[in-house]
Each structure stands twice: as C-alpha cells, then as structure tokens.
Simulated assay, not measured.
Amino acid sequence: MPGHVTSLRAYLDQGRAVPLTARVRQHAPSSTAALWQAMRAEVRGCRDVVLKDLLRPSILDQPDFATALAFLLSRKLDSDLLRKATLFGLVRDFQRARPQSVDAAAADLHAICDRDPAATDSVTPFLFFKGFHAIQCHRVAHWLWQENRRTLAHYIQSRASELFAVDIHPAARLGQRILFDHGTGIVVGETAVIEDDVALLQNVTLGGTGKEAGDRHPKVRRGALIGTGAKVLGNIEIGEGAKVGAGAIVLRPVAPFTTVVGNPARPVGERHEGLPSLTMDQSLPPVDYVI
C-alpha cells in the first residue's frame, strides 16, 4: 500500500483498488494464502464423483488463488471472439500489474462468506456466485480502461453483463469487501464510486438523471446497504453506514447512518450506529406516511 495515501477516499480518487486500512473494522479475515488452503481442503472433502471433473481443474490443479481466479474468469468470459487461453493471459497480466487485486478478490470472497447466510463454504461462492464474478471481471475491465485499452474494457463489460446480468461501467471505481447479493439487474454508471464494505442487492441502479455529462453518478460510502430494487440517481452521496430501503427512488444525498425509504426517498427513524452492510439487516423503522 503506498505510504503517501492517507485515506480511503484519496485512494479511490486515484482509481485503484482499495487496500485494507486500519480505518475499516474487520472480522479477522484470513490471508489470501490461508483462504486458498481452506478452499483446497473443502474440495478434498467432497465425495461427489460428478463434481470432481469441475473441482479438480478449478481448484486442486491450480497452484494458488490468483491462478485459480484467472482460470475461472477466462472460462466464464470465453467466446468465439476471444478464447479462454487469450483471456487467461490477459487476467494474469492484470494480476501482475495490479497484485493488490488478488487480495481484494480474496477479501470480497471472505465478505460473502462472513455476511451471506447462503454461503456455507468458500468454494461455492468462488465458483458460482455471479455477483462475485461480476466484480472480479470489473476489476480487469477497470485496469484496461486505465491503460487506455477501452474497447477491450467494453468487451469485458459487455460479456460480463451478458453472463451475469450485472452491468458495471469500466470507469466506475470499486473498493473491496463488496457484496452484490444475487447480483441480477445491478447497474453501476461510469462515474459511480462504491467504497469498502458496501452491499447492493439485486436490481439496484446507481445511475444518472438524464443526458448530463461529466461526474453524474452516485458515490456510495463505506458500509452502506442498498436494498432490492432501489434506484439511486445523480451525482449524490450515500453516506457512510446509510441504509436505503427496497424499492426506494433516491434523488438527494443521504446522510451517514441514516435510513431512507419511499419514492422519492426520505429519512425515517433515528440515526443508527454501525455499518448495516456488515449485518445485512434490512429491517426498517416504522414509517408514518403512505408511499
């Protein structure tokens, strides 16, 4: 981690993957190497003979987490236009150029295991959770975008959107330990920012309000939780630890540690404590008006 970067926001503004920082409360995540060893142990314990043809090449035949991730993404993105061998080399080039991306991917996977009750092991979300896959494909596309290989970045974006029904513009900036729960229908615009520990549920849109140019998409700060089907539109800030209720239409900034619901969204209840994305608590305070 570069020593001159003193804040999460400053690091995001450089357009890089966000490192682990002392500022972010964590649940003792395993190192990438330890996570990889745990995944291999899970696979060795599998007794399903049908699954062996999937698990052995995906996990046991790979030397480390980074190579396994490149193997996975190259086979997901494979098409008649770009073959898996070419894509594997591209992902490995990205990992060598941005080694912090491998730890970020491991942190994303740990966040899923820690916060999603559907994830009872590490291998299942690694192989099958498309929200995780979409974020990792975005990291590759974002690197290509920064390297001015923008047509190829758009190819990765388009292919990932076809596969996972998650559409993230290559220029959007994402932190780590991000959870796209289910993932289906999530749209993230070009100038959007998603900081560390954020959780988005299915059908969330971080979009613009029209044809305006420039910086026009939301900035979602650390630990925010955005519920199913919510639409957050315009260059507005969703504050640290904020909670956006399912189906809300958010057109104005949301203060930190505040819950908003409705169309248009408005605050309800008292300010809460903690980061709702870490507990995935989607319950809402009483609402005293008709939406």
Rank of each mutant, 00 (worst) to 15 (best):
P2E: 03
P2M: 08
G3V: 01
H4P: 02
H4K: 06
T6F: 06
T6D: 03
S7G: 06
R9E: 08
R16Q: 14
R23I: 09
V24R: 14
R25S: 13
R25K: 15
Q26C: 15
H27A: 14
S30M: 10
S30A: 12
S30L: 11
S31C: 05
A34G: 10
L35K: 06
Q37Y: 09
Q37N: 14
R40N: 10
A41D: 07
V43P: 05
C46H: 11
D48A: 14
V49E: 06
V50Y: 09
D53Q: 03
R56W: 09
P57Q: 02
I59M: 04
I59E: 02
D61W: 07
D61K: 13
D61G: 09
D64N: 11
F65W: 01
T67E: 04
F71A: 00
K76G: 11
L77D: 00
D80T: 07
K84H: 15
A85P: 00
T86Q: 08
L87V: 11
F88N: 09
L90M: 12
L90P: 02
V91E: 01
V91Y: 05
F94C: 06
F94Y: 13
F94P: 01
R98Q: 12
R98G: 06
A104M: 03
A105N: 03
A106V: 05
H110R: 12
H110P: 02
D116S: 11
A118Y: 10
A119S: 12
A119N: 07
V123E: 00
P125G: 10
P125Q: 07
F126S: 03
L127F: 11
F129D: 00
C137Y: 07
H138W: 01
W145N: 06
E147H: 13
E147F: 07
L152I: 01
A153Q: 00
H154M: 09
H154C: 08
Y155W: 15
I156Y: 05
E162S: 15
A165Q: 12
D167K: 05
R173G: 12
R173C: 15
L174R: 12
G175M: 04
Q176K: 14
I178T: 12
F180Q: 05
D181G: 11
G185M: 02
V187I: 12
V187D: 02
E190N: 04
A192C: 13
A192T: 02
V198A: 15
Q202N: 13
T205K: 12
G208W: 03
G210A: 08
A213V: 02
G214N: 06
H217L: 03
K219F: 05
R222F: 11
A224R: 13
I226Q: 11
K231N: 15
N235M: 04
E240R: 14
A242H: 01
I249N: 15
P253H: 07
P253G: 10
T258P: 03
T259E: 01
T259F: 09
V260Q: 04
N263C: 04
G269N: 05
R271T: 13
P276T: 00
M280S: 13
M280W: 13
D281Y: 09
Q282F: 15
P285V: 01
P286F: 07
V287C: 08
D288K: 14
V290Y: 07
I291G: 12
